[in-house]
Design a binder for these strands. Structure first.
Lengths: 324, 324
DNA sequence: CTGAAAGCGCTTACAG
DNA sequence: CTGAAAGCGCTTACAG
């Protein structure tokens, strides 16, 4: 395989001139440049990035950290990886998916997601390379996130606009920030529409279809809301089953909405109204931001929150009940 | 950042001994090994892969070629990328998604998909690094593919077992091999069940919801099959719409099945019976195979065809018609 | 079991 | 506008 040395020899110039033709072609004379380019062509020259990286003391490698407890084939992660891959590959950056925070070889930067609130500070203090966080926060770092609160406000608003006043919320019981932001959005929408918040209409569930079922069942039998907004789609799927069990027709007897827009294996009978998280786009934004920072480390820190998208389908309909 | 030289100095050994502790620890004495390991720990040593790659004349980089005309966020590609990412990252290999076949810097190997039948030979002749092809073929190369024919046989078989005899097939009009394999599977199942193949029951469509609609509409009005098997899910979604237009209830009046199992944005009203392609698993298999080959270039070539999975949902039901 | 030395293919001040 | 030389951080026969 031809090296720059071979190219230099064939073109009758020095190695350094070849390097210039590759990296800063404008400072070399037209004539020399042409000679060198012809030689590169003739020899089918391909640069050795490892050598370049070594000489420049960089790696052109980015770590993408995805916590080990979520599968790579989880739709959320797939969207994220796809976005990151697209953006980094366009820029000729390599990447590696890391499942733990042991950064065991060199990289130029990192994209980090799924950090618990408690981990954020420790991680930020420890990491030695530039990084971008997937997740809203107040630290002095770059971050990108889906605007969860806005998404929840949009959804709850529209449910209310359909005449619902007694709207249950099945919260995911977690310390992950996004869930709390969605609950917050739900509350804000109520407030905005002058509907008093009622603690009894909120249930806390683990992230499973089963817990969605039991909590929705409980909510439907005890409180009889006309609509239920679930913190994540998986819980909504459970709520569908609860409605079926109770012989409640969706959306005639009960409206059900979710949040995620990523489920594709658990196709429910009635198309689920949900808020689609722009995860792929977030992945792209994260990668793009990291590349900007690598190019210019002096950049002020930026926080970017992407607007989610309503997927209004058939599981939510107008309120047909007398009360609430 | 500490280098092997620093480690050697602190441990009071030579550079080469440090290298041995890292690469072949068994040939160095216990005592030395411990000293070196302590020094590595103390200095928080991280190997520089670029230097290693340069010295070893490899790159630890794999290209994943995805043709430029399909989006990275296409569900098919996302599954594939996820599988590849999982496998390569575990093995500490970096990767880069390429959108063209211009391999413009060095890599150790490549994973290639979406090649037209006509491109396969040319590509195989041209490429200079080990590679694995996503796609069935007869060339002397490694390949992995979904077993499309088997999937189609399974599906058509089960449709027939539900009493259907007059089964339409909406073919995707393409030179891509997989589509022809699915048509072949459909024919084989008919033959196996002693149902004569009827050319009039096959339609050729571009890969769009709209073409699914027009072709299904045509088929439903002219030939009146009791079931339609679509070459890809997107066509099936169009067929749903055609049934709706013709006031045919699914699955009471007409059964509709697809093939892909990857659609998640176009949730149909009636859950679609389909064959799920194990694309994520294929991605893993491709990467795993490539890594094996890199480790041992002498390996005999292997062809691996993954079995797809039936997703039997509500769009297909028993045949309730007198004829056919 | 351990080490001295050359080499991998680039870049980068420095000099002219 | 062009070039000589040192250096990036590893590995690898070769020797002992």
């Amino acid at each position: 395989m031809a090296t720059m040395k071979d190219v230099a020899q064939l073109a009758g110039v020095s190695l350094i001139t070849v390097s210039r033709v590759i990296n800063s072609p404008d400072i070399v004379s037209e004539a020399t440049r042409l000679k060198v380019e012809q030689a590169m062509e003739a020899l089918d020259f391909m640069p050795n990035f490892a050598a370049k990286a070594l000489a420049q003391n960089n790696t052109r490698t980015i770590y993408l950290y995805i916590p080990g407890n979520i599968g790579i084939s989880d739709p959320f992660n797939m969207h994220l990886i796809a976005g990151v891959a697209e953006e980094l590959s366009n820029a000729n950056y390599l990447f590696l998916v890391k499942r733990d925070l042991e950064f065991n070889h060199r990289c130029d930067g990192a994209i980090v997601m799924g950090l618990d609130l408690s981990e954020e500070n420790a991680f930020t203090a420890k990491i030695k390379v530039p990084f971008v966080l997937f997740g809203k926060n107040d630290l002095d770092i770059d971050c990108v996130d889906v605007d969860n609160e806005l998404g929840a406000v949009m959804m709850a608003d529209k449910i209310i606009a359909n005449g619902h006043k007694k709207i249950g919320f099945i919260m995911r019981d977690t310390s992950q920030r996004y869930a709390h932001e969605r609950l917050e959005g739900y509350k804000k929408a109520l407030e905005k529409n002058n509907i008093p918040f009622d603690e009894k209409l909120v249930r806390y569930a683990e992230n499973s279809e089963q817990e969605g079922y039991t909590n929705a069942y409980d909510l439907m039998t005890r409180e009889k809301p006309t609509a239920i907004f679930c913190c994540v789609d998986l819980l909504a799927i459970g709520a569908f089953r609860a409605a079926e069990k109770l012989k409640l027709k969706i959306p005639r007897d009960i409206s059900i909405a979710g949040f995620d827009g990523l489920i594709f294996d658990l196709i429910p009978k009635v198309p689920l109204t949900t808020v689609r998280q722009p995860v792929y786009e977030t992945g792209r934004a994260l990668a793009a931001r990291l590349l900007e920072r690598l190019k210019n480390p002096e950049l002020p820190y930026e926080k970017k929150y992407l607007e989610p998208e309503m997927k209004w389908r058939e599981s939510v309909g107008p309120n047909r009940h007398q009360t609430g």
